[in-house]
Design a protein around this nucleic acid. Structure first.
Length: 557
RNA sequence: GGACCCGUAGCCUAGCAUGGACAAGGCGGCAGCCUCCUAAGCUGCAGAUCGCGGGUUCAAAUCCCGCCGGGUCCGCCA
């Protein structure tokens, strides 16, 4: 709805309706700063120009633009009663579909995220990737895109070869979750290898065998990778994250895409030979060093397979977005430049900065990490302690709520931080469920449900929103709720989902403010009907918003 | 050495794309609110040289240059 209001404001402004001057404001529903720009050209006061523009506005074709006023050079726009009424009614009518819209140019999109090496469990750094990626995928769907998600499995890495040797040599603990069992073998093998060139050679040979498709290697790799992925999948599932497909890196060696991409590079004249290896000349793109795509022994490299993967993406999708750690910045940009030079579409990449521990950075190889499983379990325990105090809930409900609150807290803590911001993991913050946490939003939703339950108990309530009855808190809440799709659109355009986390928090806060000042059940007549409509609308918005963040909206807590 | 990212109250963060109305929240601190729709809540108070220095502009947290601090990357690894 807000998107429409904004379009109307731009229309009303006519020749002065340049998008970039129309913005949100604390002082009005929308404002334009165009008078400031014109003031310079015309050498006159912004306030005078603003007044003049207002008197020239044409309101014939618009439904929702109400009051307009000039204040200190700003042109302030307010939505009218009809807008508020249509917003609330649209929310109530569209229910679970509220917030869905068709973004300009929405087509299909492939979101590749997580893609952690299958040599052990996901840790809190990987989770940041998963949460950003999964949330973006949900947002694309909300914006009318057809979305597929991929987990790109790096099954050809040295790490995996080491894990395989460890698996073969030491076996694994079958009682443990499979990813945790694999990482034990991996860490042990890493220690074993240190300073032993003969073992190094064995690793090299195993990798070579795997690339060549030799039976023993293929079987071993598959076993280890599938084991690890099974555990990783379970972790993701608990976080409400799933992938449509796990795409194995090695498949591009076997299906010919690697050969095809090398051929394309060759034809484009981008390759040269150096000591028997094939190399892309990167100096022309401004890079210091070149990129090897085929070793002298004929085997390929990570970047070669990634190029092949993106050739495949070009053939199957209109848009593709990758979520990658900041350590991939250089290689990611090189990939984009090479693809462009080949006339292919490069992926859009969301880079996120690292999550470190107070004691330093994490390392799977050294076993220095906080696993996602451990994190969820601890947060869940903490949530149980609080839920335990509730007397009106049974055991099953309590467990369900604790799980929803824990997963929510986790997802929210990661998604609310802008991707480019480095994070230091802090247990005390992870275990805090007050304010600025998803529990606050879930609580607000549960309160809305509770008010409605009570109203139903007292007899089937009639609900009807009347804009002219709105108190300031109510108007503010409705305006906020109208912005749902607008905020989603902003997040997609910038590929940064954090703005939505803030937005939903604002709604929850506005709802709390509303019901603490405006009694609902105790109100009578049309005021009661009006407030019940707001509560129900807010319940829907909070639930849909939480869903968009992959967080369960529980009805009691 | 080169490249990229981050630096906003004691602490964590939003705002930076498109410069504009008093820099917005939360945690922690202090003072209040449960005979009243769930206190995982609400209200109020205190707390900021927006890392530092220049520049552009009528106007800079936001743009440009330099510096400082933290992180990351610069393999015939992935």
């Amino acid at each position: 709805m807000f998107r429409q209001f904004r379009k109307e404001v731009i229309k009303v402004l006519g020749d002065y309706g340049e998008e970039r001057f129309v913005r949100e404001s604390e002082h009005a529903d929308l404002c334009s700063t165009v008078a400031f720009k014109l003031a310079k050209e015309k050498k006159r006061k912004p306030s005078e120009i603003a007044e003049e523009i207002i008197s020239s506005l044409e309101f014939s074709d618009v439904e929702y633009v109400g009051k307009v006023e000039a204040v200190n050079g700003y042109i302030n726009f307010y939505a009218n009663y009809e807008f508020l009424e249509d917003t609330v009614n649209l929310i109530l009518d569209s229910d679970e579909n509220y917030g869905s819209f068709k973004m300009d140019g929405a087509g299909n999109v492939l979101v590749e995220h997580t893609s952690a090496n299958p040599d052990g469990p996901l840790h809190i750094g990987h989770i940041r990737n998963s949460i950003i990626g999964d949330t973006l995928a949900r947002m694309f769907r909300k914006a009318g895109y057809e979305v597929k998600t991929h987990y790109y499995v790096n099954d050809m890495g040295r790490q995996i070869a080491i894990a395989c040797l460890g698996y073969e040599r030491f076996g694994i603990d079958e009682n443990k979750k499979p990813d945790h069992a694999i990482v034990e073998a991996y860490i042990k093998m890493n220690r074993e290898i240190e300073g032993k060139p003969e073992l190094e050679e064995e690793v090299e040979k195993l990798m070579l065998d795997y690339e060549r498709g030799e039976e023993r290697a293929v079987r071993l790799f598959r076993e280890v990778v599938e084991h690890a992925l099974k555990g990783i999948g379970e972790t993701l599932h608990r976080l409400n994250i799933s992938h449509d497909e796990y795409v194995w890196e090695s498949s591009f060696v076997r299906n010919g895409y690697v050969d095809r991409v090398i051929e394309m590079l060759e034809k484009a004249g981008m390759l040269k030979e150096e000591d028997g290896a094939l190399v892309i000349n990167m100096k022309r793109f401004g890079y210091e060093k070149d990129v090897v795509v085929r070793r002298k022994n004929g085997t390929t490299l990570y970047v070669t397979r990634d190029l092949a993967y993106h050739l495949w993406k070009n053939e199957n999708f209109e848009n593709f977005v990758n979520v990658l750690g900041a350590d991939h910045k250089l290689i990611g940009r090189q990939l984009q430049d090479v693809l462009k030079a080949l006339g292919l579409k490069p992926p859009e990449i969301v880079f996120f900065e690292f999550v470190s521990l107070p004691e330093g950075s994490m390392s799977t190889r050294k076993g220095q990490f906080v696993s996602a499983d451990e994190l969820v379990e601890k947060v869940c325990e903490e949530a149980r302690k609080i839920v335990e105090k509730r007397e009106d809930l049974n055991g099953e409900e309590k467990e369900e709520i604790a799980e929803a609150v824990a997963v929510g807290a986790l997802r929210y803590d990661f998604v609310r931080i802008a991707p480019e911001k480095p994070m230091t993991f802090d247990w005390s913050k992870a275990l805090d469920f007050e304010r600025q946490s998803s529990a606050y939003i879930q609580y607000s939703h549960a309160r809305a449900c509770s008010i409605l339950r009570k109203a139903v108990k007292e007899g089937m309530p009639e609900i009807e929103f009347s804009a002219e009855l709105c108190t300031p808190e109510e108007r503010k809440l409705v305006m906020l709720m109208s912005k749902f799709s607008w905020v989603v659109e902003k997040c997609i355009r910038s590929l940064r989902p954090n703005a939505f986390a803030d937005y939903l928090m604002d709604i929850a806060a506005a709802f709390n403010d509303f019901y603490s000042k405006n009694p609902v059940i105790k109100a009578e007549g049309e005021v009661r009907m009006h407030r019940l409509a707001i509560v129900d609308a807010c319940r829907i918005v909070l639930r849909n918003g939480l869903e968009l963040l992959g967080i369960r909206a529980v009805e009691k807590m």
